[in-house]
Simulated scan of single mutants.
Amino acid sequence: MQLLKNKVVFLTGGTEGIGYECAQAYHKAGAKVSIITHKAQSLHQCRMQFFNDDIHYILADVSVSADVQRAINETISRFGKIDIIHNNAGVSSPSKTVCDTTEEEWDKVFNVNVKGIYHTTKFGIEALKASKGNILNSSSLVGNIGQELHAAYTATKGAVNALTKSMALDYAEHGIRVNAVAPAGVWTPMLRRWSNQQPNAAHIKNYLDEIHPLGYCPEGDVVADACLFLASDQARFITGCILPVSGGAELGYRKYMGQPLQKVDDQKVKL
């Protein structure tokens, strides 16, 4: 069954990791997908692997108002409408405390992770009113539980959670649902690069497996499946939900007992 047959998805951050898995899941479910990224090389590589008439790529930065307005207009011009806006684009660096984070770094994280949602909603809301569509935000488990050395990132994900609920109330009268997914650890290219550069990669894999009570750190497809459900009519009476896709990582107390973790490329484990 194609859950998104004849739907149009506006997906930010859709060329890598969880976003790429979502793009594939949405397309397989029958949707036309407009994929937005600010990374030219990533866009090119993704287009070489995943391209047909129902996929449209746009180079744009979600933190820039004019870029998002252009991307929304281009999507409507190409596909005629927008049914779903999935705000997946996000950055996690720097790996720092509040006091060690510069003002420029703080603003960058908020401008992408939170203001990006402001931009897509501001310029896409009329299209969603017309289609009675829905909005899906990519949050994180750390928006609820916190994480050391990621003050700015966790702050943005807490903001995303609160914003999701407020938007759900604001737009319910238009038949627009607003939800979010909150993963814990997920194997993405970035996480694999980080883990391979640790002193003992085997310990890192065990650590990432063990923080999830279900026993393993998943691939991005498990998040994509949850996103597909929330974006589809099967979730037609769900709004304001922050759905954990965490394997139970928020349950109980777990602490890494192996060798100390290292920062690599200004990144730590991103949950």
Rank of each mutant, 00 (worst) to 15 (best):
T239V: 10
A71E: 00
I36Q: 00
S139A: 14
G14Y: 00
K255H: 13
P213I: 07
P218T: 03
G220A: 13
A201G: 06
N196P: 02
I125D: 03
V269N: 00
E250K: 07
A25V: 10
D265E: 14
I76N: 02
C217R: 09
V178F: 03
E173W: 09
K122G: 04
S77E: 10
A159F: 03
Q234Y: 11
K5C: 07
F10A: 01
P260A: 08
Q197L: 14
E105D: 12
E21T: 12
I211K: 02
P260W: 04
P244T: 07
N134E: 11
A40R: 10
E250S: 12
G158C: 09
C22L: 12
W106E: 07
A152P: 00
K32I: 03
L59N: 11
A168Y: 01
D170P: 08
Q267A: 12
K7M: 09
T102S: 15
D225K: 14
V269T: 10
W106R: 08
D100E: 15
Y253Q: 13
R78L: 11
R192W: 13
I211P: 00
L271A: 05
D265R: 04
Q24T: 12
V264G: 02
N196G: 15
A60R: 00
M190V: 13
S92V: 08
K165P: 02
S34I: 06
V223G: 05
I135Q: 02
P260N: 11
N179F: 05
G19V: 05
A162R: 14
A184D: 06
Q147F: 06
T12M: 08
P199W: 04
W187S: 06
N137T: 13
T121P: 01
N113T: 04
L169H: 12
S140F: 02
R193V: 12
A224T: 09
T15S: 07
Y253P: 04
D209P: 05
K165S: 10
S246Q: 11
F50I: 13
I204D: 00
T15K: 02
Q45R: 10
E126I: 13
C46S: 15
D265M: 07
E250F: 08
D54G: 07
S246F: 01
Y216H: 10
V33G: 03
H174I: 06
T120N: 03
Y20N: 15
A31H: 03
K132S: 14
V98L: 15
P218D: 07
V112M: 01
N196Q: 10
S42N: 15
R193Y: 11
N179W: 01
L214V: 13
G124M: 04
H174C: 14
D67E: 06
D67F: 01
G13A: 03
